[in-house]
Design a protein around this nucleic acid. Structure first.
Lengths: 208, 208
DNA sequence: ACCTGAACACCGTTCAAGT
DNA sequence: ACCTGAACACCGTTCAAGT
C-alpha cells in the first residue's frame, strides 16, 4: 500500500499488454488490462490518459512498425508501391486491432513525415498538384479497407445454406486454396491503383 | 404500468431512432434510445435482441437503401461500376454509422443476391473463375475504405503547426475547394479498379 | 404480448490516503 | 511520483410484477 521503490508500471508495458489482449480477444477493458498487469485498475490512470490514451499508444505502435525505408527507392512508383505494402503489413501483424483504430487513421509524426515524402515523390514525378491528395487518399483507403478485411472472419464469405447463390458459391470454391483471399485482393487493388497513377502521369504530367 | 392497448414500440421505430442518434452523435446507448422513444430502457429489450440486435437492424437498413437496379445494365463494366456507386451512396447517407458496422460487412440476403448477380456478370463476361472472388473483395474493400473516409473528420487531413511538412501542406491547399476529397478518391479508386478489371479480361479471358 | 421498476454485473474515471 | 481502496455515474441486460 503506497508507492513502491521502483515503479511497477510504465506506458510501454501498458501498451504491450493491451496489444496482447486485443490480439487475443479483439478488444480490451481497463480492469482486464490491470488484472493482467497485476495492479489495481486505478493505477493505470497514473500513466496514460484514460482508455482513449491507451488506444492512442496502440496507434503509435502500429505507426512505428511501418518500415519507411521503401520511400528511398526509385523510380517513384517502386517507392510508392513498396511503402504501401509495408504500411499494410503493419496492420496485418495485428488484424484485430484494426477496427479499434479504424475511426481515425494514424496521424502521428512518422506517418505525416511519410506522407510528406510521398507528396514530394509524386510532385517530383510530375503529378499535377490538384490530384496528389486524391491519389494519397485513395491509397490510404485501399490500405484501411484491406486492413478491415484482415480483421473480418473468413466465415463472412460463406453462403448460408438457405440462400440460393450457386455462382457465388462456385466462385468461392474456385479460389486458390490456402492463398489469402484478403492478400490477393490487396495485391489486385494496389496494382490497379499503381497502373491508374502511371496512366494519369503519362496523360497529364510528365516532363513535357 | 402494464401493457398498453396498442404497442408503443416496434422494431422500425427503434431502428429509425437509433439511426437518428448515430447521425447526430456518432453512436448510441440503449438508455439514450429509450429516453428519446419515451419509454423505459427495459422495454426496448422486448423487441430487439439487445444492443447488438439494434446494430444489425441498422446494417439491414443500409442494405435496403442500396439500389440494385444498376445490376440490370449492360455491358458488365457499366453495371458493376454503377452498382458500386449505389453501394457506396448508401453509406454516404449515414457516414457516422460506418465505424459501427465496419467490423463486419453487410451480409444480408440483398447483398448476397447482389453478389450472386455480380459473380454471374463477371463469369458471363469471361473472367477466369479463380480471380472473381479477388475482384469482388477488392471492390468491397474500396467501398468500405472509402466509407470509413467519409466518417473521418476533414480535420484529420490538417497538418499540425509544429510539424514541418511543406509539400503535404501545399498538396492540401491545391485541392479543388468544395469538391469532396473523399468523393474524388473514391472515383479515382473505382476507375482504377474498373480499368484493372478490363485489362485483366482482355489478357486472360474474353471470347477467344 | 408488452411495459415498468428494480436489480445486477461491469466499465471508465476520480480522488483522498498512504509511502 | 506512484499505488491502493473506495466511490460515482453510466451502461447492457434480466426478471418478476402488472395489465
Amino acid at each position: 500500500v503506497g508507492r513502491p521503490r521502483k515503479a511497477l508500471l510504465d506506458r510501454d508495458r501498458i501498451a504491450a499488454t493491451a496489444m496482447e489482449l486485443v490480439d487475443e480477444y479483439g478488444d480490451f477493458t481497463v480492469p482486464e488490462l490491470a488484472r493482467r498487469l497485476g495492479v489495481q485498475t486505478a493505477s493505470v490512470y497514473h500513466h496514460v490518459d484514460g482508455r482513449t490514451g491507451i488506444v492512442e499508444l496502440l496507434r503509435v505502435r502500429i505507426g512505428e512498425a511501418i518500415d519507411y525505408a521503401p520511400l528511398e527507392l526509385r523510380p517513384w512508383d517502386v517507392a510508392l508501391e513498396a511503402f504501401m505494402r509495408s504500411y499494410r503489413a503493419a496492420f496485418a501483424a495485428h488484424p484485430r486491432l484494426v477496427p479499434l483504430l479504424a475511426t481515425t487513421p494514424i496521424r502521428d509524426a512518422g506517418i505525416l513525415a511519410a506522407y510528406e515524402r510521398i507528396v514530394a515523390v509524386l510532385d517530383d514525378a510530375g503529378f499535377p498538384a490538384p490530384v496528389i491528395m486524391t491519389a494519397l487518399t485513395a491509397l490510404e483507403n485501399l490500405v484501411l479497407g484491406s486492413a478491415l478485411d484482415l480483421a473480418a472472419p473468413e466465415v463472412m464469405w460463406e453462403v448460408p445454406p438457405e440462400v440460393d447463390a450457386p455462382r457465388l458459391t462456385a466462385a468461392l470454391a474456385a479460389q486458390p486454396p490456402g492463398t489469402g483471399r484478403a492478400d490477393q485482393a490487396f495485391d489486385f487493388g494496389l496494382a490497379a491503383l499503381m497502373t491508374g497513377l502511371r496512366d494519369l502521369l503519362s496523360r497529364t504530367g510528365g516532363s513535357g
